Structure formats: C-alpha cells, structure tokens
Amino acid sequence: MVEEIRSSPVPYRTALIVGAGSGISASVTRALSRAGVKVAVASRNADRLAPLSDETSALAFAADATDPAAVNRLFEQTEAAIGVPEIVLYNASGRVRGPIVDLDAELVRRAIEVSSWGAFLVVQQAARRLIPRGQGAILLTGATASVKGFAHSSAFAVGKFGLRGLAQSAARELAPQGIHVAHFVIDGAVRSATRPDPAERPDSTLDPDAIAQTYLDVLRQPRSAWSWEIELRPWVENF
C-alpha cells in the first residue's frame, strides 16, 4: 500500500513556490514538473530564477513576501497564468547571526518578517483561494531552529518558531476544510555544489532531491492519515 501511494500521481495540478532558489525549492520545482504539475516560482529577484525556469518551464515572478500588496499581486499573477495554485510552498527565511546584545534591531525585524510574517501573508492568500475549492496543500519549510534555539541564532529561532506555530494553527483550522497544511523541519545542512558531503562522511548532509521526494510523498498522503509535521535529518545527525 505504501508503494502504491508513493507511485500514485500528485493529486494537484498547479503550484506556487515562494522564496525559490537553487536548493530545496529548485528540487521541489523539478519534482513537481516531472509529475506534470504546472509550477510558478517567486523570489525578490526573478532574474536569478531564469536557469530554473528554463530547465523546468516554471514561470518566474518577482515578489517581496513581506509586502501584503506584493503577495496579493503574486497570487493574482499566478492565477492568471496557470490557475489557482493548488499547492503553495513557502520556502523563504531570514537569518541574522550574533550575540543578542550586538544584533542590529532593524536587521532582526527584517529577518523575522521574512521567516514568519511573510509566511502568514502567503498562507492567508492561499487559504482565501483554496477554502472555496475544498482542497489544496500548503507546505512550509522549517529548520532545526523551528524547535530548538541555538546561541547566536535568536532572530532565526524567533522567525522559525513563529513559522511552526503558524503551521500548527493553520493545520488545525484548514484541514477540516480539505486543505493539507504541513511543516517540514529540515534538521541538518542541505547539500549543495558549495557544500558537498565530505569524502569520509557520505550522506552526512541532506540531499535536496531527497527532501523534495518527501514533500511529494506528503502531497500524496490520503486525507485519513495526513501529517502536519515531518522531520528530516541525515542518518548521522544528532538530535
């Protein structure tokens, strides 16, 4: 039965990924495109999405996720281009590191806005469109900081704790209306061209393509057994 679910089609036809880049969001874009889903991707700088757009035929839009008018406009543009996005993934986050006493308050405010305020705006716009349809999925990318605050990472923890709280609340509110809300705790470093696995520690970082596979597996879950939160970590990660 598990293999049947994993091999089944993704039950949605359109997607919007906010906070798109070259890591997890790019892998999810590729996976959704291969599954026949029409994808729109968005970031503050749409030009940097050109290679991904060329590779996958995803439509690229520019939007500041912390600006309510810009988020509303992004959803309108997406809807006009590919239809109502039935899958909405929020992948943006803000990070400022340093001792609490030394942090620039304005930079901290901006980081928190990106991690949680922007997520609220995107979830709100998604819910307004999905509730009348009675189906859809809203996915939120979290981090270790969603559940554990580290020294010199207070701003990131505030933003990611807020994101997790939003996900939990939205899941309880929206699931009975047919909308699957899921939060993903990415507990470890994500592999990239500039951060490969050390030769002596294979698979010690999270493969973004493997993360994307889990996102799609969650999208395929029967509604009788929905997950609201999934933790992902390499096999050697401490927790």
Results as ranks from 00 to 15, higher is better:
L163R: 06
G159R: 05
I131Y: 05
G142F: 06
A170N: 09
S115N: 06
F150P: 01
K160H: 03
Q125S: 15
A126S: 13
V147P: 00
L130W: 08
E173N: 05
A167V: 04
L140H: 09
V185I: 15
T141F: 05
A193L: 13
P196L: 11
L174V: 05
K148P: 00
R129Q: 09
H152T: 15
A155T: 02
A155S: 14
G178R: 04
D197Q: 10
A157T: 14
A137Y: 08
R133M: 14
L130E: 02
A127G: 12
P196G: 13
L130A: 08
D187T: 07
Q177C: 04
A171Y: 09
I138C: 07
A137D: 06
V190C: 03
T194E: 15
G134M: 10
V122P: 01
T141E: 04
V147F: 11
R195Q: 11
A127N: 04
L130P: 08
V158A: 14
A171S: 14
S154P: 04
I138G: 07
Q168H: 11
A189W: 13
A170L: 05
P132D: 00
H183W: 08
F184T: 02
L139H: 11
L139P: 06
R172W: 04
W117L: 13
W117S: 12
K148G: 00
A143W: 02
A167E: 01
T144P: 00
Q168A: 10
P176W: 05
P196F: 03
T194V: 12
G134W: 04
A189D: 15
R128E: 15
T141W: 02
V123K: 00
P132G: 09
Q168C: 01
L166T: 10
L139M: 15
A171N: 08
G134R: 11
Q125M: 12
L163A: 08
A151S: 13
Q125N: 13
R133F: 06
P132C: 10
A170C: 10
R129W: 03
S146V: 12
R128D: 14
S116K: 03
R191D: 00
D197T: 12
I131P: 06
Q177V: 00
A151N: 11
F161C: 11
A157K: 05
R129D: 00
A151W: 10
A182L: 02
